Amino acid sequence: MNKKIFVLYTGGTIGMKHSPQGLTPDTALVHQALQPFSDGLEFDWHVCNPLIDSSAVTLADQQNWLGLIGRNIARYDGFLILHGTDTLAYTANLFALACCNLDKPIVLTGSQWPYTADNSDAPLNLATAVAALQLGLPQVTIAFNGKLYPAVGSSKVSTQTAAGFDNPHFGALAELSPEGRLSAAAPTPQTNGGFHILTINPQAKIFAYPLIPGFSANHLAHILNHTPTQALILQSYGHGNAPADPAMIEALGNFIRQGGRVLNISQVPQGCAAAVYAQGNALRHAGVITGGKCNLETATALLTLAVSNDWDNHTICQILQQLGLVEAV
Rank of each mutant, 00 (worst) to 15 (best):
S19F: 07
S38N: 12
L41R: 04
L8R: 09
T58A: 06
V57A: 11
H46R: 13
T24R: 10
V57D: 00
P25M: 00
F43G: 04
M16S: 15
L23N: 07
P20L: 06
Q62C: 09
T24C: 09
N49P: 00
Q35E: 14
Q21Y: 05
A28I: 04
A56D: 15
E42R: 05
S55W: 01
W45Y: 14
P25V: 00
L66Q: 04
H18M: 13
D53K: 07
I14D: 12
D61S: 03
G15K: 11
A60M: 10
W65S: 08
A60E: 14
L41E: 03
S54K: 03
L23C: 08
Q21C: 02
V57C: 11
V57S: 05
P36R: 08
K17I: 14
S38K: 11
M16N: 10
H46P: 01
I52G: 02
D39S: 11
T10C: 13
H46F: 13
T13E: 11
G11N: 06
W65R: 10
H31R: 10
E42T: 13
D53S: 12
W65H: 10
P25Y: 00
S55G: 14
G11C: 02
A60P: 02
A60G: 09
F37T: 05
D44V: 08
G15W: 05
T58G: 05
A33C: 09
V47R: 05
H46V: 09
M16G: 14
I52C: 13
N49E: 15
W45I: 06
V57W: 00
Q62N: 11
Q63S: 11
S38M: 03
